[in-house]
Amino acid sequence: IGSLMYASIFGNVSAIIQRLYSGTARYHTQMLRVREFIRFHQIPNPLRQRLEEYFQHAWSYTNGIDMNAVLKGFPECLQADICLHLNRSLLQHCKPFRGATKGCLRALAMKFKTTHAPPGDTLVHAGDLLTALYFISRGSIEILRGDVVVAILGKNDIFGEPLNLYARPGKSNGDVRALTYCDLHKIHRDDLLEVLDMYPEFSDHFWSSLEITFNLRDTNMIPGSPGSTELEGGFSRQRKRKLSFRRRTDKDTEQPGEVSALGPGRAGAGPSSRGRPGGPWGESPSSGPSSPESSEDEGPGRSSSPLRLVPFSSPRPPGEPPGGEPLMEDCEKSSDTCNPLSGAFSGVSNIFSFWGDSRGRQYQELPRCPAPTPSLLNIPLSSPGRRPRGDVESRLDALQRQLNRLETRLSADMATVLQLLQRQMTLVPPAYSAVTTPGPGPTSTSPLLPVSPLPTLTLDSLSQVSQFMACEELPPGAPELPQEGPTRRLSLPGQLGALTSQPLHRHGSDPG
């Protein structure tokens, strides 16, 4: 009997000691992992102490058991019943959930998450997105703005933001810190809205009876308010094209079509300037034949640059190039080494500058006005007194259609001029006259002087055409309008007829 009692007592005591040691061994194993994590990542002392304290409290609170892992091991129907039991206190005593059906309560219970916070733990920081609604079931918390405590909340209090009033989550206007050990039930806004969409009859009752104890939403960050730039940057990543407008005076608003859609830094370009900076079609017209890549860069430059609305530039004389043409100036200075066709295309550029300027006046029909002061630039669209967005969009579309028509007509005119030049060069190729044979009589004449090349004649003739079109064909006081194609086609051969009437002889060394 004594040996039996000794064996039973010894066996029970050893089993008890073994169970104690097993729990202690698990605790030390998990604690060792936490300390190894702290050492590996070199976490500083204040945060390291918070980690160790939280682990110790969580171990004593749950005995080292992962409740979520245990809950996920059950089937979904059983999980709903378990969640309904775990959140029964909240669902029974909170006013917004009263009167809900059994199915609605089960769906809500599945969406709730339980959070346990030790003292000093910050649940929400200032500036964080308010993605959830919090219900306090135990403990107390404090809300701070800077170093000032603005509120202390306790059991059955609710904090967050009214989700039904805002389409997008706002930002917190303060820090939420736990004063004691707290148990909180939180539900994400997407989950709550999903359940309320499934039960629309409960939705009206819920929003009407929901009383948020403390609204954390920062009202200064609401979209459309003066301080909402940061919020707009976070939620409006896919922005449309940006529009900046110059201020319109009362006198300017009476004149229709007073602005032109141009790229940034293009205030001095012609009315047909689009795409790359520098001139019509993204580059100076005089350098068009020598740089074919300008047409390839036109599309990307047009689509990537934001639109700006600026006044037209001052008018340019008909014979003056659009500006920024070092290529043609070098050719004029060193005409001995340049291609003979460069002079002809220089005359073509003069005609283009004249036609572009006159067509700009035809479509816009307003006098040039000086540029406004820099303080009046970049007025935002949302400022008071601005035109409605639809009106601005319609004006932009009208300007775009005008620019497209202008570009089409300029292309047709350019093709006409090039065809005339090619026809003239085919009839009378460039050549130098040879020395004529002296006559049989004693009164022999001296050799004839060489005839100037055709490109120079073409430049003079085209300059005469531009001056003739600019000065004589337009009646005084009438708006400057571009001439039609047949009129220009008839004027060019008439001007060139006198020049080509002389018999030109080919030089023996000319390969053409």
Rank of each mutant, 00 (worst) to 15 (best):
P503C: 13
D250H: 12
Q402D: 05
C338Y: 08
H507K: 14
S335L: 07
P256D: 11
P315Q: 10
T443V: 10
M198G: 04
C182H: 01
F345N: 10
Q464H: 04
R168Q: 13
K242Y: 10
L496H: 11
A398C: 15
E407D: 10
L341S: 11
T249W: 07
M425D: 07
G139L: 02
L496V: 09
T426H: 06
A478D: 15
L210W: 04
S287N: 04
G441L: 11
L243P: 15
S314T: 07
S433L: 08
D297K: 11
Y199I: 01
R248S: 09
P450S: 12
R368S: 10
S501E: 07
F352W: 13
Q238H: 12
R316N: 10
E211H: 10
A434M: 10
S290V: 06
P271L: 11
L462Y: 05
P315S: 08
L410E: 03
T445P: 15
S346K: 09
L341G: 07
N220S: 11
Q495R: 10
L474I: 13
S260T: 13
K186Q: 13
P486A: 03
L153W: 01
D357L: 11
I152D: 01
A261G: 11
M414S: 07
S305Y: 15
A498E: 10
G299D: 15
Y199S: 02
S291A: 05
D460A: 09
L421G: 05
I158G: 02
S272M: 11
R401L: 10
S382G: 10
L193V: 09
L504R: 09
C471E: 05
N156W: 07
S314M: 13
Y432M: 14
Q502M: 13
I351T: 14
E298L: 06
L474K: 07
L403A: 05
R248P: 08
L231I: 14
E296I: 10
S290C: 10
R241A: 13
D250V: 10
R274M: 05
Q424E: 06
N173P: 02
H185N: 09
N215I: 05
T416G: 07
D330I: 11
E472D: 13
L210F: 14
P384Y: 15
R239T: 09
Q238G: 11
L130P: 01
T500N: 05
G154N: 09
N350W: 01
D128C: 01
E211A: 09
G154W: 03
E393M: 01
T229G: 10
S358R: 09
P430H: 11
L129G: 04
T213N: 09
D183E: 07
D330W: 02
E473P: 13
P493T: 11
F354V: 07
E201M: 04
A269D: 08
L496K: 09
L481D: 12
E296V: 08
T426D: 05
W207Q: 11
P493A: 05
S394A: 13
A415N: 09
V451D: 05
A178D: 01
S140T: 10
T337G: 10
T213S: 07
E480L: 15
D197L: 09
A151N: 01
I222D: 12
M414T: 13
T426N: 10
R177T: 06
G263T: 10
Q364C: 05
R395K: 13
I212M: 07
P384D: 05
P455V: 08
L216C: 01
W207V: 09
S273F: 13
F345W: 05
S375G: 11
L418D: 03
Y363K: 07
P503D: 08
T253G: 13
D510I: 05
S452M: 13
D250P: 13
L192S: 01
A344I: 07
S411Q: 15
C369F: 06
G347D: 11
G323Q: 12
P321M: 06
D336K: 13
I212E: 01
G324I: 09
P317Q: 09
S228A: 12
P442G: 08
T436G: 11
G356V: 09
L309C: 12
G268Q: 13
R302H: 13
S375W: 05
R302G: 11
L481M: 05
L421A: 06
Y363F: 15
R386K: 11
L231Y: 12
L309T: 15
P289I: 01
F245H: 07
M425S: 12
N404P: 03
T337A: 11
L184I: 09
S349N: 04
L133E: 01
E161M: 01
P455S: 09
L406D: 03
N164R: 07
L377E: 09
D147A: 04
Q362S: 12
F235R: 11
V465F: 15
S260F: 09
L179D: 01
Q238N: 10
P453C: 08
T180E: 06
A167F: 09
R389L: 06
F468I: 14
N156E: 11
E325F: 10
R386V: 13
P493H: 06
P326D: 13
D175L: 09
Y199V: 02
A415G: 06
C369Y: 10
P429F: 13
M469W: 15
P322R: 10
C369E: 12
A371K: 12
S228D: 14
N173H: 12
S172P: 03
T253Q: 13
S273N: 03
V176F: 02
G263H: 12
T249F: 09
P455G: 09
P321K: 10
P374A: 08
P223M: 10
R189M: 10
F214D: 01
R361A: 08
G154Y: 11
F235T: 11
A398I: 10
P438E: 10
P200M: 01
S291P: 15
H505G: 11
C471K: 08
G270S: 12
L403W: 04
D397R: 06
P453S: 10
E211M: 05
I379D: 06
G234S: 09
C471T: 09
S140P: 01
A415I: 05
S303G: 07
V435E: 13
P322K: 09
S236F: 12
Q255Y: 12
S284M: 05
P486H: 15
Y432W: 10
H507P: 10
G288Q: 08
P289T: 06
L421H: 09
Q422N: 04
G282V: 13
L193P: 03
H505L: 11
E201I: 01
T373A: 12
R248L: 10
S382M: 15
H505S: 05
P440W: 09
M221P: 10
F352N: 12
S303I: 08
G512H: 12
H188V: 09
S208V: 06
K186W: 14
R308S: 10
G360Q: 07
P482G: 12
S461W: 04
L196Y: 02
D157C: 08
G160R: 02
P511N: 06
P223V: 12
E320D: 12
L427P: 04
S314K: 09
P430K: 05
E332R: 09
R189F: 05
P223A: 11
G356S: 08
I351Q: 08
G494R: 07
L399F: 10
N220A: 12
I187L: 09
S286P: 14
L418E: 03
K155D: 12
R389A: 11
E480G: 04
F159V: 05
N215Y: 01
P318Y: 06
P326I: 14
E473Y: 07
G146R: 09
P374C: 12
T408Q: 08
R302Y: 05
E407Y: 03
S349E: 10
L462C: 15
P300K: 15
A431D: 07
G477W: 15
M198T: 11
Q402L: 13
P380L: 03
I222H: 09
G174R: 05
S461Y: 06
F206N: 03
Q464Y: 13
V176M: 01
K155L: 03
A132Y: 09
N339V: 10
S228N: 12
R168V: 08
E472P: 10
Q364F: 13
D147Q: 08
L163K: 03
V149A: 08
D330A: 11
E407R: 04
G494W: 13
S203D: 07
L179G: 06
R237L: 11
P322N: 13
M198E: 09
A470E: 11
S273G: 10
P384F: 10
D297C: 06
P285L: 10
G257M: 09
Y432E: 11
N156G: 08
N215D: 04
P430T: 09
F352P: 11
L184M: 08
T437F: 10
C471W: 01
R138L: 04
